[in-house]
């Protein structure tokens, strides 16, 4: 049983990659694009950083390489697809709980977020 807490707080790269994989399995380039779109271009992972993170996350068991492929016409034979694992999801949930607790704590003291 891996101790979930030992992964927290998540590094920003890990957080974004896991979030991107929340929408289903993706290949590397798709992850980069997904993150860029969602953050309005603020976070742009480089290929090196991405795969370095992926290698580490594979070792930690947060993600796995997916054996299932999307529909044939969209698939590129050589591409590697990644999928979030059960552990990955639990780590993500724990991280969200941690973050919202932080927000509640701050709100209780009278802080409110800046309007976006």
């Amino acid at each position: 049983m891996t101790d979930i807490e030992s992964f927290l707080p998540l590094q920003s790269g890990t957080f974004h990659i896991l979030t991107a994989l929340g929408g289903g399995e993706r290949h590397g380039y798709a992850i980069i694009q997904d993150i860029a779109v969602r953050t309005g271009g603020k976070v742009k992972l480089s290929a090196g950083t991405l795969y370095r993170s992926i290698q580490r996350m594979l070792e930690q068991g947060l993600i796995v390489e997916s054996r299932r492929r999307p529909t044939a016409e969209l698939d590129d034979e050589r591409r590697r697809y990644y999928r979030i694992t059960e552990l990955g999801s639990r780590v993500m949930r724990a991280e969200l709980r941690r973050l919202s607790q932080l927000i509640q704590l701050a709100r209780a003291k009278g802080f409110a977020p800046e309007s976006i």
């Binding site: 090196g48 795969y51 992926i54 290698q55 590697r80």
Partner: peptide
């Protein structure tokens, strides 16, 4: 070891 694993992907993205 890293190159063998991810080299092609890196190239493609590049």
């Amino acid at each position: 070891s890293f190159r063998e694993e991810y080299g092609e992907e890196l190239l493609r993205i590049f």
